[in-house]
Amino acid sequence: MAEAPPRRLGLGPPPGDAPRAELVALTAVQSEQGEAGGGGSPRRLGLLGSPLPPGAPLPGPGSGSGSACGQRSSAAHKRYRRLQNWVYNVLERPRGWAFVYHVFIFLLVFSCLVLSVLSTIQEHQELANECLLILEFVMIVVFGLEYIVRVWSAGCCCRYRGWQGRFRFARKPFCVIDFIVFVASVAVIAAGTQGNIFATSALRSMRFLQILRMVRMDRRGGTWKLLGSVVYAHSKELITAWYIGFLVLIFASFLVYLAEKDANSDFSSYADSLWWGTITLTTIGYGDKTPHTWLGRVLAAGFALLGISFFALPAGILGSGFALKVQEQHRQKHFEKRRMPAANLIQAAWRLYSTDMSRAYLTATWYYYDSILPSFRELALLFEHVQRARNGGLRPLEVRRAPVPDGAPSRYPPVATCHRPGSTSFCPGESSRMGIKDRIRMGSSQRRTGPSKQHLAPPTMPTSPSSEQVGEATSPTKVQKSWSFNDRTRFRASLRLKPRTSAEDAPSEEVA
């Protein structure tokens, strides 16, 4: 009796068929016929556990003709996506030579605008209408194809895939403007070719909807975003200037109206006075309405000098805001240009540092100066060695804690006790272990408590650290204090090793 083939788990290929790579489910599931010992083939499952149809090819690079078809379809799909992405970037994010197409579109729109203006002049109306009709045909074809291509290429973005995504893309403001202008152009052409009475009025009214094509030149909205950011950044200043200017306008108009309503027919109503105030304070000055009385002229002159300053403030605020924003954008561009080279330089330096163990090129690091100058660790070890030599091999803490019996001779020589300023008595072995921070803190506390006492003391002649007598400086308080830590004499004296002298005989010792 033939044995059933062993159940295979995992992703390994079956024996005897090495080139074939078959994806098997996580659990080997066989058909009921196979479990019962029949000759049925096992049921194939996909990666998600769903059964595959009987005629479906197995996924994998070596699955025969199905694999070749899959490779061809995958390559075609990649080319399709690449083309779609390229078209989308050309239309929505132009760079380099892609601006040539947008310059061509701008020339078409500008020519249409010029011809629309010439069509309103009686001398050039006939020729402009003929040229404009031909140009409209060209623009309908160009913009119609462009609109379709834009909607198709938007599928390269995830949020615009599918018919719902394309509809979302078509609802964008600039796409809506394109659609309105396209419909208006078709209506103008249809009305112009019919030759009816309505054609002339339709051409004159709907052609100027094509002015909206100038708005579509900035599809990404960079200028509007820049203007919005400047207004938002200086909103408080703008609101303040406009508010005060509006108050000056209504008060000036009302007072001039009261002064001129009886003697001047131009100011017969408050609305006429508001019109005069707006034209005057905005420095336009049509001259259609002028005050005639001396009181009205004085009020107009005073409020004009006051109001023009507030009406001119928004222009200066926006101008300075634009300058600052442009400078910030230039700085951001320079930062973006330098970020990648800086990151590459840091990575290269780290690779060199991690692979080169000698690091002989590091001549400006802490390790280099640590090898030249005595390190703080060596100074600490030197302090501890000196203290243990004086205390008979014991550390200062051990000397303080060691009990001394009554009447027993002390094995240590008597030492002079010292007192730290602002604290109780402490171990004499710690007097010379006072660090730089303690010395600086002690000097600052003395300056806070009594700076007036220092200038009363007789001035001391500054001497070099080499000429100081070591026996005289029994305490860190003898170090000359200065008002600034930048004094080199104080810094050098604080680094010197001060020996400890006994109370009975204080021989001067120098520590090399």
Results as ranks from 00 to 15, higher is better:
residue 109 V to I: 03
residue 236 K to R: 07
residue 133 L to H: 15
residue 208 F to Y: 14
residue 225 K to E: 13
residue 238 L to M: 07
residue 136 E to A: 12
residue 208 F to C: 11
residue 110 F to Y: 09
residue 211 I to V: 02
residue 254 F to S: 15
residue 149 V to F: 11
residue 201 S to F: 01
residue 220 R to C: 10
residue 219 R to H: 09
residue 188 V to F: 03
residue 106 F to L: 15
residue 225 K to Q: 09
residue 136 E to G: 15
residue 196 N to S: 13
residue 257 Y to F: 14
residue 225 K to N: 09
residue 143 F to Y: 14
residue 184 A to D: 10
residue 106 F to Y: 11
residue 213 R to S: 12
residue 213 R to H: 00
residue 290 T to S: 11
residue 214 M to T: 00
residue 188 V to G: 12
residue 178 D to A: 02
residue 201 S to A: 05
residue 156 C to W: 09
residue 210 Q to K: 01
residue 209 L to P: 12
residue 203 L to P: 13
residue 219 R to G: 14
residue 204 R to C: 11
residue 175 C to F: 06
residue 109 V to L: 06
residue 310 F to S: 06
residue 132 L to R: 02
residue 192 G to D: 08
residue 116 S to C: 02
residue 180 I to M: 08
residue 243 Y to H: 12
residue 105 I to L: 07
residue 209 L to Q: 12
residue 102 H to P: 13
residue 216 R to C: 01
residue 310 F to V: 08
residue 175 C to Y: 08
residue 188 V to L: 02
residue 172 K to E: 15
residue 188 V to D: 04
residue 251 F to Y: 15
residue 177 I to N: 15
residue 224 W to L: 03
residue 133 L to P: 00
residue 136 E to Q: 05
residue 271 A to S: 02
residue 175 C to R: 00
residue 223 T to S: 05
residue 133 L to F: 03
residue 193 T to P: 13
residue 197 I to L: 06
residue 219 R to L: 03
residue 120 T to I: 06
residue 133 L to I: 02
residue 184 A to V: 08
residue 125 Q to H: 11
residue 240 T to P: 06
residue 178 D to H: 08
residue 245 G to W: 07
residue 294 W to C: 05
residue 191 A to E: 04
residue 221 G to S: 10
residue 178 D to Y: 07
residue 231 V to F: 08
residue 232 Y to N: 15
residue 196 N to Y: 13
residue 181 V to G: 09
residue 198 F to I: 09
residue 218 D to G: 02
residue 172 K to Q: 14
residue 223 T to P: 00
residue 197 I to F: 01
residue 206 M to T: 11
residue 239 I to S: 04
residue 113 L to R: 13
residue 216 R to H: 00
residue 206 M to V: 04
residue 212 L to Q: 01
residue 196 N to T: 08
residue 223 T to I: 03
residue 133 L to V: 04
residue 194 Q to P: 01
residue 269 S to C: 13
residue 108 L to P: 01
residue 249 L to V: 07
residue 208 F to S: 04
residue 211 I to T: 05
residue 325 K to M: 05
residue 173 P to S: 10
residue 133 L to R: 00
residue 177 I to S: 10
residue 228 G to R: 14
residue 213 R to G: 06
residue 211 I to S: 03
residue 107 L to F: 10
residue 113 L to V: 14
residue 178 D to E: 03
residue 214 M to V: 00
residue 225 K to T: 05
residue 236 K to T: 13
residue 115 L to P: 04
residue 278 T to M: 10
residue 189 I to N: 08
residue 221 G to C: 10
residue 181 V to A: 12
residue 191 A to S: 05
residue 253 S to T: 04
residue 271 A to T: 07
residue 173 P to T: 07
residue 213 R to C: 01
residue 333 K to E: 12
residue 136 E to V: 09
residue 210 Q to E: 14
residue 217 M to T: 11
residue 215 V to G: 02
residue 271 A to G: 06
